[in-house]
Amino acid sequence: MTHDQPAQPALRVQGIQKSFQDLQVLRGVDLDVEAGSIVALLGSNGAGKTTLVRILSTLLKADAGTATVHGHDVAARPGAVRESISLTGQFAAVDEILTGRENLVLVARLRHLKDPGAVADELLARFSLTEAGGRRAATYSGGMRRRLDIAMSLVGDPPIVFLDEPTNGLDPQARIDVWKGVKKLAESGTTVLLTTQYLDEAEQLADRIAILHEGTIIQDGTLAELEALLPPAQVEYVEKQPTLEDVFLSLVGTSARKES
């Protein structure tokens, strides 16, 4: 799959602010996401991750700042933004009465695509669900439902996908299965913005990691760049390299532990 990408970043966020009554959730967020990359937006519960995604997907209006998605301003051209994205929320939105294949065919028909059956079969194969395609989604495991949910979000080949806490509540094996599906997205050229509070998930998936804390991005870089923020490993009996958890807790301090 290939997408016609604008020369500028796939996502550009500049000075985004958002408050709910007296609660200021976003305090001036700046973030660029390059086309074809996976960027993890990492933060504790309540850090503002979902709020930012809702703004980028035109479900909320920012109080201040600007954002462009696939070259389209989210405030001025919300329709064009919605045509360029797909959003997968924290809970799988599959119809449990339908089979996996029927779920995909339904979405393809709603998007007026040619040959919905072929679209469904290709996505079932891509997410290793072909054998389960004829079963009702109610019989699927949590990981299979989430993979089907992500597959449904890809009907029509959107160039940009937002994944909001995609493995929330899943068991370890199901999480690994979802990770494989997300990696396939990037391999196919899709731009992925992934929100997560799981440090190992960001380590496994992201090309770059942006740490959102108290409404702002406090660090943004590759895993190696973030690890370099900590002092070199001390050699005693064994060498202990800093983990992303070490970096995260060092940057956000004890407040992250209290929030979690």
Rank of each mutant, 00 (worst) to 15 (best):
F162E: 01
F162H: 01
F162I: 00
L163H: 02
L163C: 06
D164Y: 04
D164W: 03
D164H: 06
D164K: 05
E165F: 05
E165A: 08
E165R: 05
P166N: 03
P166T: 02
P166C: 03
P166K: 03
P166E: 01
T167P: 04
T167R: 04
T167Q: 04
N168E: 15
N168S: 13
N168K: 09
N168R: 11
N168G: 08
N168C: 08
G169I: 10
G169C: 09
G169S: 10
G169T: 07
G169Y: 09
G169P: 06
G169V: 08
G169Q: 08
L170Y: 11
L170C: 14
L170V: 11
L170P: 09
L170M: 06
D171P: 09
D171L: 13
D171A: 12
D171S: 13
P172K: 10
P172L: 12
P172G: 10
P172M: 12
P172R: 13
P172S: 10
Q173T: 14
Q173S: 13
Q173C: 11
Q173I: 14
Q173V: 15
A174S: 15
A174W: 05
A174H: 06
A174R: 05
A174K: 06
A174D: 07
R175E: 06
R175F: 09
R175T: 14
R175C: 07
I176L: 12
I176C: 11
I176N: 10
I176P: 03
D177I: 00
D177T: 05
D177V: 02
D177H: 04
D177A: 07
V178W: 03
V178M: 00
W179T: 08
W179D: 07
W179G: 10
W179Q: 09
K180L: 15
K180R: 11
K180A: 14
G181K: 00
G181R: 00
G181Y: 00
V182G: 01
V182S: 00
V182K: 01
V182E: 01
V182A: 02
K183W: 11
K183G: 08
K183D: 12
K184H: 13
K184V: 14
K184F: 12
K184R: 15
K184S: 15
L185G: 04
L185K: 05
L185A: 07
A186H: 13
A186L: 07
A186K: 14
A186R: 15
A186N: 10
A186W: 11
E187D: 14
E187W: 12
E187L: 13
S188I: 03
S188R: 08
S188T: 14
S188C: 06
S188G: 08
S188P: 04
G189W: 15
G189H: 08
G189E: 10
T190D: 07
T190A: 10
T191V: 03
T191N: 04
T191E: 00
T191W: 00
T191Q: 00
T191F: 02
T191K: 01
V192Q: 06
V192S: 09
V192L: 09
V192P: 04
V192N: 04
L193V: 07
L193R: 02
L193M: 15
L194T: 03
L194R: 04
L194P: 02
T195E: 02
T195V: 04
T196C: 02
T196H: 00
T196S: 05
T196Y: 02
T196E: 01
Q197Y: 08
Q197A: 12
Q197V: 05
Q197I: 08
Q197E: 10
Y198I: 02
Y198V: 07
Y198D: 01
Y198E: 06
Y198A: 04
Y198R: 06
Y198K: 07
